[in-house]
Design a protein around this nucleic acid. Structure first.
Length: 513
DNA sequence: AGTGCAGTTGACTTT
DNA sequence: TAAAGTCAACTGCAC
């Protein structure tokens, strides 16, 4: 039998057929192209993985299978260890080249990619790893990063190539249970796949996002007024570049009045890559406090009563509980409230960020290590670069949900309590509680503590760790490596003693809303 | 019509 | 992406 060695395109978190450099490169070789998705059980067993994420990815893969079938060869799916699957394909068909996008994942996928790299080298198989977003591998310095981001995003996207059909079993996409994933009830989960992504993008730019800048802050409005593209970026069913180019097109010829929203959206696309770059440059961010002075500051919270109540949404702070429950039921939460959830866990409750970080990772359909772990450390005050930001769970509720609409929906025990008591049921008059059918520590808990006193303690702990001569030097080094050059924050080379003023835009250095 | 004053607003600092 | 505190300028109002 004459073997025709294959150009294998390994799809990872890039489950789309368009703007896919690895697919285009493979097709350009003229060889038969095998589009491959490897479902790795060990990856889905990790503590940051969940059923909702897998199901979303599986829907993306199913849509990709259809898109590729239309091009000539459907997606081939195999279950198992990546090296084992590739080795089996190599034995059966011969692999002439492996094509896969560079990607920034967690420590497990980082190690997995190194194993695959070692294997292809040993086999003499050429490996091609093109870029797919604004993240730069082996980046020597952050200088000029923003400029190269725009250059990459402005470059034209690859169109999907025609594929020759192969006589290879396409395999089936397994369900979550067969991978050993526990049941993960998420009735409001978003739907995966490039068509769903395109519909969200088009709808957002056509007018749904008109009030984006104001609407993103409150969970009452954010579910409708944000783009909701995050899970698609995480699975790759839409590329950041495809979104950026659609946004630029909307600025040129989209509906009038959308300009502020689209401009904000574009800046967030850049931030998406900015945060991923941090993890790409320093993968240890997943497990290690960025600033040495903050290591070991807080106890591991896993298994504690405080952690359990935080994770279940029964802290007794109604707005916080509502946010946690809404996240569990939908797989999504707006940025501000994500920060509040992490801030309360690591601030008021004084827990180390790792267990809360893993809990949130599993609840996020859009979990992406490159966004999540840099954000987790920032929101916990572990980077040492940013100021301590403790969110007041009651004040946020009064600001973002003044009339209690959101709390009523997600904390139905309190639904009949009128605002403003719904924000502070522990302080409500007994007859108001009675009339609303609320029994404190009966059907809704008293708060886990006095949030103002807890915040004072947290502030003292976090600011206390910042005193000491070694603190500033280490913080400066972190800013130099990871900070945005647009931020207006102190740069090495600033004159000592020069005013380090932060203008309102400079405060926005790490501002996502 | 000017004055005193309590309360508000916004800019800025500190934690 | 915070919140609380300080301070000065401002406002509305009574007299």
């Amino acid at each position: 039998m004459i073997r025709r060695p294959l150009a294998v395109v390994w799809f990872k978190r890039d489950l789309r057929a368009t703007d896919h450099a690895a697919l285009a490169l493979a097709a350009a070789t003229g060889r038969d192209v095998l589009p491959l998705w490897i479902v790795e059980p060990a990856l889905w067993q990790l503590h940051d993985a969940s059923g909702r994420q897998y199901e979303f990815h599986a829907e993306c893969a199913a849509a990709l299978r259809d898109d590729l079938a239309a091009l000539g060869q459907p997606l081939v799916v195999r279950v198992g260890d990546a090296v084992a699957v590739l080795a089996a394909l190599h034995r059966a068909h011969g692999i002439a080249g492996l094509f896969a996008h560079q990607e920034t994942g967690n420590l497990w996928t980082y190690a997995r990619d190194r194993r695959v790299r070692a294997w292809v080298r040993a086999q003499g198989i050429p490996l091609h790893e093109p870029r797919q977003n604004g993240v730069v591998r082996a980046l020597p310095s952050r200088d000029g990063w923003a400029r190269q981001w725009e250059r990459f995003m402005r470059a034209s996207c690859d169109v999907a190539p025609a594929l020759r059909p192969l006589a290879i079993d396409a395999g089936t996409i397994p369900d979550a249970a067969s991978l050993g994933l526990p049941p993960d009830l998420c009735p409001g989960r978003q739907t995966g796949g490039a068509p769903a992504a395109r519909a969200l993008l088009d709808g957002f730019l056509a007018g749904r996002g008109r009030d984006y800048r104001r609407g993103m802050s409150s969970p009452v409005t954010a579910f409708d007024q944000c783009s909701r593209l995050s899970p698609h970026f995480a699975a790759g069913s839409l590329s950041v570049r495809q979104a950026a180019q659609a946004a630029w097109a909307a600025l040129d010829r989209g509906p009038p009045g959308m300009r502020p929203a689209v401009t904000s959206f574009l800046s967030r696309l850049a931030w998406h890559c900015h945060f991923t770059q941090k993890l790409e440059s320093e993968p240890g961010i997943e497990t290690r406090d960025l600033h040495p002075a903050l290591r070991g500051l807080r106890p591991d919270g896993a298994g504690t009563e405080a952690f359990r109540r935080w994770a279940e949404g029964t802290t007794g702070w109604p707005f916080l509980d509502g946010c946690m429950r809404a996240l569990a039921a939908t797989g999504w939460m707006n940025f501000r409230m994500r920060a509040m959830l992490m801030s309360v866990a690591t601030g008021h409750l004084g827990l180390d960020w790792r267990a809360p970080g893993l809990h949130l990772a599993r609840l996020f359909t859009d979990y992406d290590a490159g966004i999540h772990w840099p954000q987790t450390q920032m929101q916990s005050g572990s980077t040492g670069v940013n100021t301590v930001r403790l969110y007041n769970p009651v004040k946020q509720g009064l600001d973002q949900d003044a009339d209690g609409t959101f709390i009523r929906r997600w904390v139905p025990e309190l639904a009949r309590l009128p605002a403003p008591h719904i924000h502070t049921p522990w302080a409500a008059p007994p007859d108001a509680l009675h009339d609303a059918g609320v029994r404190l520590d009966g059907n809704y808990p008293r708060p886990i503590g006095d949030h103002e006193a807890l915040a004072r303690t947290a502030r003292a702990t976090l600011w206390g760790a910042r005193r000491g001569p070694a603190y500033r030097a280490a913080a400066d080094a972190i800013q130099q490596q990871h900070g945005s050059r647009r931020s207006g924050m102190k740069q090495v080379g600033d004159r000592p003693g020069a005013a380090r003023r932060r203008t309102p835009t400079a405060q926005g250095a790490l501002e996502l809303e």
